[in-house]
Amino acid sequence: MDIRQIESFVAVAEELNFTRAAEIMYVTQSGLSSSIRALERELRTQLFDRTPRTVTLAPAGHAFLPRARRMLRDAHAAQRELAAGPDEVSGLLGVGTEQCLGDLVDLPDLLATFQERFPGVSVRFEQLGSQTLLDRLHHGELGAALLAQPGSFVSPLARGELESFEVARDGFELVMAPTHALATRDDTGWTDFEEHAFVDFDTTWTARRIVDSAFASRRLVRRTAFSVNDVHMLLELVHRGLGVALIPASLANKPQADGLVRRPFVEPDLQWAVHFVTTAESGPPARLLAKMMFSTETMAEMRKGIGGASAGRSSALVD
């Protein structure tokens, strides 16, 4: 969750109108709606009741609003402590990420908001594999990185020269074409996969390594028929019935997955966590970017705080 999502929520909550809130935020209405949907997914509850003519706060939205305002005050105060004013912050910020983080982090919006608020900073952005990201952080070639790792991942981020906090966590889903042999089965298990082809990401992707490790720990063999470096290509191959895929749920949420059969595949070792990582040498621009994001611990506290108000609403998330 990032600061822009919270600002979007507060704008809609105060205006009770998506069009006016979008004008205030200087974004398109579709972009604002997407930001609110992403926030509702992260909080696992519905914040607004929408009809074709009206928008009102749902009970969980009423409970979340004072917390959201407090989060914004704290985040803005922290930014002011790091910078006397946006025009006084300058320098180069190298940011790296994994190839695809699904909708866990809205990178274009985050980077655009950062650039708008701190125009004196030159941002250099690149997508790289996780090991390359770590190497570049260690060598000072990047000031910050969004690094996806297995949920149990600890050691490299715990070393003194790297600092990190978790910003998102995701489980995995099995996706397949409706015509696939496994699509009509509700009891698919690990051993059922051995006779079916898989569409996989390249071995440099963290999501692929997590799946490979899960199969290896169970002493199971699977056949990777297609290995790709693009999530849209992966989903298209699955659509064509050329294989099944085990992918993070946020990737299965992409519009390109519409029409596929999706099943949560809940296992302790199938967890994909995204960390915001800096080093002890990262400068003020990297610290400012970090202050625009909220940790999973903060998210958990927010869910707990609005839990009573959102009872019975989490399964009805609509646009």
Rank of each mutant, 00 (worst) to 15 (best):
R4K: 09
I6S: 03
A11Y: 03
V12I: 08
T19P: 06
T28W: 04
T28N: 00
Q29M: 00
S30P: 02
S30K: 04
G31T: 11
S33H: 08
S34Q: 10
S35C: 12
L39W: 08
L43E: 07
R44W: 06
T45M: 09
R53N: 15
T54H: 11
T56N: 14
L57R: 09
P59N: 00
P59Q: 00
F64T: 07
P66V: 12
A68M: 03
R70M: 09
L72I: 14
L72P: 03
A78C: 12
A78N: 09
R80V: 13
A83M: 14
A84R: 14
A84V: 15
A84H: 15
P86I: 15
S90I: 02
G91I: 15
L93M: 11
G94T: 11
G94P: 06
V95Q: 06
T97L: 12
T97C: 13
E98K: 06
C100D: 02
C100P: 00
L101D: 06
G102L: 03
L104H: 07
D106I: 07
D106V: 09
P108C: 04
L110T: 13
A112D: 15
F114D: 10
P119R: 11
Q127N: 13
Q131M: 08
Q131D: 14
D135K: 15
L137H: 11
H138T: 15
E141Q: 12
L146T: 01
P150D: 07
P156V: 11
A158W: 13
R159M: 14
D170M: 06
F172Q: 04
L174M: 15
V175G: 04
V175Q: 04
M176I: 15
T179A: 13
A181M: 13
A183S: 15
D187T: 01
F193Q: 10
F201R: 14
W205R: 01
W205P: 02
R208C: 08
D212Q: 06
S213E: 12
F215S: 00
F215D: 02
S217P: 00
T224P: 01
V228K: 05
G241T: 05
L242G: 00
G243Q: 03
I247Y: 00
P248H: 01
A249Y: 03
N253C: 07
L260A: 04
V261D: 07
R262Q: 14
R263D: 01
R263P: 02
R263W: 08
F265W: 13
D269N: 14
W272L: 11
V274N: 01
H275C: 13
F276A: 03
A280R: 03
A280F: 00
G283A: 13
A286T: 00
A290N: 05
T298S: 05
E301F: 04
K304F: 08
K304L: 12
I306M: 05
V318Q: 12
V318C: 01
